[in-house]
Amino acid sequence: MNISWQNVKSIYTREINNYFNTAIGYVFLLIFSLFINFLFLYLPNFWDVNSISMENFFSWMRIVYLFLIPAITMRLWSEEKKTGTIEVLLTLPYQTLETILGKYLSALSFLGFALGSTIFIPIFLGTIGSPDWMLIAGGYIGLILLGASYIALGLLISWYTQDQIIALLITIAVCFLFFIMGYPPFLQFMGFLSPIISFISVSWHFDSLARGMLDTRDIIFFISFILLFLYLNYHSIENKK
């Protein structure tokens, strides 16, 4: 299977324009930016905590992602289905994988832009003290991998629905499921399955990265998770064709 990156780029450009050619994309980014800054600075109060660290930011981002990523991915396939452009798209001389990659990378870029708007937080930390820059870099690597995994998941869910809102709600629910899989209240009900369940939890793997430990096991998990869900998406589309 030869992938034409020119085709991927065409799909990517189309999708990224969909994010940025309307005011909704910007309003969404503005709300995200204000919200995450508020959470970081006031819950708990940054000055009271008295620590030059972004741990609190990374903790909140895990929760914010549960809503941010589904909102980014909800329309990727479902809107095409609703407006009927899916038929045109799938009959274009593009391979399924190229279409998936174009859409996936555009969502990832949008997420990158959203994360880019938080770059002022570490900059300010640098002006008032000496934060551990490598820990911050590790946290951001973790956020990118976590986001990339959720996007792959959200892209698949978006394929199965025609309604954006339904796609949003299901993606929130499934992301939440993968998130809480690593936490005690959920594992409590899983009995002997809890070690396996916790292993496939994204939060379980994100925790190490957020602490500043770059572990090949976590990297392999995230990459294989992304590839698995992109393949599932590919498989679903090919079945439909």
Binding site: D132, W133, G212, M213, T216, R217, S224, L227, L228
Partner: peptide, 25 residues
């Protein structure tokens, strides 16, 4: 199956990098 196998194998051979400046890990 490949997903689970690769992850299972990753646990037998892995490398960790401590990113913290203090090298706390």
């Amino acid at each position: 199956m490949l997903f689970f196998t690769v992850n299972w194998l990753s646990y037998s051979l892995y490398i960790r990098f401590d990113l913290s400046a203090s090298g706390r890990f």
